[in-house]
Design a protein around this nucleic acid. Sequence first.
DNA 1: GCTTAACTTGCAAACGATTTGCATTTTTGT
DNA 2: ACAAAAATGCAAATCGTTTGCAAGTTAAGC
Lengths: 146, 146
Amino acid sequence: MAAMDIANHLRRHKKSLTRARAEIWHILTQSEKPLSPDEIHRRLTGHKVDLATVYRNLRALKDIGLVREIDLREAFKRYEAILPGQHVHHIMCQVCGRIEKVRHCVVQNMANAIQKESGFTLKDHSLECFGICPSCQPHKTKAQGT
Amino acid sequence: MAAMDIANHLRRHKKSLTRARAEIWHILTQSEKPLSPDEIHRRLTGHKVDLATVYRNLRALKDIGLVREIDLREAFKRYEAILPGQHVHHIMCQVCGRIEKVRHCVVQNMANAIQKESGFTLKDHSLECFGICPSCQPHKTKAQGT
DNA sequence: GCTTAACTTGCAAACGATTTGCATTTTTGT
DNA sequence: ACAAAAATGCAAATCGTTTGCAAGTTAAGC
Ligand SMILES: [Mn+2]
Ligand SMILES: [Mn+2]
Ligand SMILES: [Zn+2]
Ligand SMILES: [Zn+2]
């Protein structure tokens, strides 16, 4: 989604390109990981933007398909820009909380099998992984108790 | 998880087998779909159980690995009994809300690829699908506009 | 640019799912 | 049955998120 296109995308949906929206969109496109509403709010540096406005805009951007909402089993949701040609999932470290992208999408390969098994037409999916990152791997010692 | 084993499983974790727990567990094992705390609460027929107790017990059962918490993009979480040898995901109809099991797990096949790509040790994952169920399929007519 | 309608925002209050403090009750292990 | 540990009911608190409304901004046509 070129920075230029977002305005058109918004206009098509009768939405304005406001300062808050532009800044939120910028923050999301720059971030390497999905951000919480609060994190986004704290990164807003220009004119004052209310947290409620952040929520309203995240919802608006999500509704028109520019932003994806992600549940990583935290107390809040995270949001990330949907970039063209990118289908991304995530893996979060259960020890340190680090979040990385997983570009591998397993679901698309199996879409047919899932549709066949369920009889549903598959439209969308959530896939998030949890594990232990390289830095948090337990150190192996010679003793290998139970 | 045989009905008998749950008591032992609880005991191993210093948890009691209370009437509320037994009843909640029974409700979960009988349900064909994951239930919300409120749905569970409404299905409790025996002696009075407070909704807070339902929440406390769902958390307890989840913490000791008997119950799984599921996010289907609703305002609440759903819970389901973890039965031995079952690895299940779900697909929800975006039109009528119907929920079906997806016994197919795509992630396990790709676990190695994901671990290789991310460097993480994969421990767990969430995978939920969304689509349109057979009853809600749009009726096809001869006209096929854009 | 000017004008007006449509859309958005700040602010404070409301919401709703979930959690928690505490006195009381139930369950457990002996 | 008994004491200790764990769980419960109840009411209040929490906290992420939403909403009403008056005021401010943006979009579109002159
Ligand atoms: Mn995918
Ligand atoms: Mn799976
Ligand atoms: Zn880590
Ligand atoms: Zn349906």
